[in-house]
Structures are given as C-alpha cells and as structure tokens.
C-alpha cells in the first residue's frame, strides 16, 4: 500500500506514457496531466530509481498499468511468474487501469519483443478468452484488451477483428482499449475504411483510448504501409479519427504514446493538452454522455 492520498481512479481526461527522460521534469514542474501510463515490464526490477521515481509520481498522479509482454494471443500457456509480477505491481501501485494486447510475443526461442498478430479463428478466440479469464483472475483486476496494429493477415482468419474483440469482451467481462493509431495503421495496411471500423467497434466496452504516431513505408506492391512506431506526433488523420471515436464512446481516458525519439516534456505535454481540449468538448455536450472511468473499470477487484 502506498502512503498516498491520490485516488487510483483515472478521470476521462488525457494522460501520457511515462518515460524516464521526463521523471525530473514531471516532479519539478507538477504538470496538469490526468494520469501517467507505465509499461509494466519496465517496473519489474527488484528496486532502484525506476521504483523510486514511480513511487514519487504515483503519490501525485493516478497510474495506468499497460503490459507489453503477457503474450495473451499465444497458444502456449501464460507465464505464471509474469502474472505474479503483474499482480505485485497492481498491489504496490494501485493502478486505475490495467491493459494488455491482443497479440503474442513469446515462443520456444524466448521473448520475441514484438506484438505479433493472431489469426482470427474460433480456436484463437477460445484461447484468448481462456487467457483473459486467467489473467483477470491472477492479477485480480478487470483488464482492457487493446486492438493491434497489423501488417499482414492470415488466410485462416474467419472473424472480423471488431467482432473478435467484441466477443472476447462479452465472454470474459474485460473492457477494450481502443488504439486509434492502430486503427489507422491497420486500415491503411489492409485497405479498409478506419471510420467504418470505428463505427463497428463495440463502443460500450471502451475503457481507454490510445493515440500515437506512425511511420510510413511501402509494401510488396509499392502500396503505403504504416508502422506503429510511436516515435512522432499524432497524425492529423488520427486526430480526426479520435474526434469520431469520442462521438461514439463519449469521453474516456486518453493516452498519448511516444516511446521512441522521445521529445522534450513540453512537446509531449502539448499533445496531451490537445486531446484534453477535445475531451472537454465531449464532456460539455448537453446530451453527451460523460462516462467516468470508474463506471467501466474501477479499482474494485473482480
């Protein structure tokens, strides 16, 4: 338990991915940011400065816990030691949100350090539901499952991605993390309409939104291929999709992700303020539903 008076619950405002480069700026300038999100694996060491800084920041802000290494989409069993480490972080830092990816990253050769795609089949759905159930049970918290950025598709897939996510949420009780940048990336890469994807997305399960920057290259046929690089500002197309998503979901906690070529703090903070301005408009709408974070994914145990 932390000696803190700061509530764990995350408001429907903008937060920022926590980077070591910004520890001091955050503590010294106490910026008006609704929450910070951490990559769980970066705080799984026994001690040292990462925990010292995180404790100081947690004493001032709510925290969201975002795992990148659980490998929920793998056929193989979840790593129980990793689940225990996640639970340890939940108990120590009392995060307001806990999320992971619809992806896999571990196989016989070891940890592959990327969010790898899964075929959307009934067999995968069963496996993912079992893993989400197991993770929520082991960690003791409701999870948000994030839609992936993908660069290719499986001939075996039979279920649309949105339907796949909706069924996992309905069956396991997990929420969804809608990464709008991933929507733009995948829609471009596979030639579908990102707005239609959002319209089909089960908005009632969305507990958080991610925004980030992509990089662009070309595929085997010379067509535009977007990479989920998190190394640049949020693209204008993604901001437009975000406004559309807010119209569907209402105001939900929104994270700016910038993990590579990390900019100076004021630049990152400006991205969060831009999201905050859009969130404030949604929240102020007379008939708009303001959906506080705790309605969907409070700090209660399962």
């Amino acid at each position: 338990m932390l000696p803190t008076s700061i509530a764990a619950a995350i408001p429907a405002r903008a937060g920022v991915g926590l980077k070591p480069e910004h520890y001091r700026a955050i503590l010294e300038s106490a910026p008006d940011v609704a929450f910070f999100e951490i990559h769980a694996e970066n705080y799984m060491g026994a001690g040292g400065p990462p925990h010292r800084y995180l404790e100081a920041i947690r004493a001032r802000y709510p925290i969201s816990l975002h795992g990148v290494g659980l490998s929920i989409g793998a056929d193989r069993a979840l790593d129980r030691e990793h689940l225990a480490r996640l639970r340890g972080l939940v108990e120590r830092y009392e995060p307001g949100l806990f999320s992971e990816h619809l992806a896999w990253s571990t196989h016989d050769t070891g940890f592959l350090n990327d969010l790898l795609p899964v075929p959307y089949t009934r067999a995968t759905l069963e496996r993912v539901c079992d893993h989400v159930d197991e993770a929520q049970e082991a960690v003791g918290r409701r999870m948000l499952l994030e839609n992936p950025s993908t660069y290719l598709v499986f001939a075996e897939s039979t279920i649309p991605e949105v339907d796949f996510l909706a069924e996992v949420a309905a069956r396991t009780g997990c929420g969804l993390l809608l990464d709008v940048n991933n929507v733009e990336v995948s829609a471009t890469n596979h030639g579908y309409d990102p707005t239609a994807y959002l319209d089909a997305f089960p908005a009632e399960h969305v507990g958080e939104i991610h925004l980030g920057g992509f990089a662009a290259t070309t595929d085997d046929r010379g067509a535009r291929l977007l990479i989920d690089a998190h190394g640049s500002p949020v693209d204008d197309r993604v901001w437009a999709l975000y406004r559309h998503a807010l119209g569907l979901c209402g105001a939900v906690p929104t994270l700016i992700e910038w993990d590579n070529d990390v900019p100076a703090w004021p630049i990152l903070h400006a991205e969060a303020r831009r999201a905050d301005a859009l969130l404030a408009r949604v929240a102020a709408r007379p008939h708009g539903e303001r959906r506080a974070a705790e309605d969907l994914h409070g700090t209660h145990a399962l």
Partner: peptide, 14 residues
C-alpha cells in the same frame, strides 16, 4: 497463409 490485401504477397510485410 500470410498475405497482404486481396491475398497479395507479404514478404515486405513479414
């Protein structure tokens, strides 16, 4: 079984 849009090639994608 890995492909781009319309069953296209996926070497650069992979």
């Amino acid at each position: 079984g890995l492909c781009g849009p319309g069953g296209g090639p996926a070497a650069r994608r992979f």
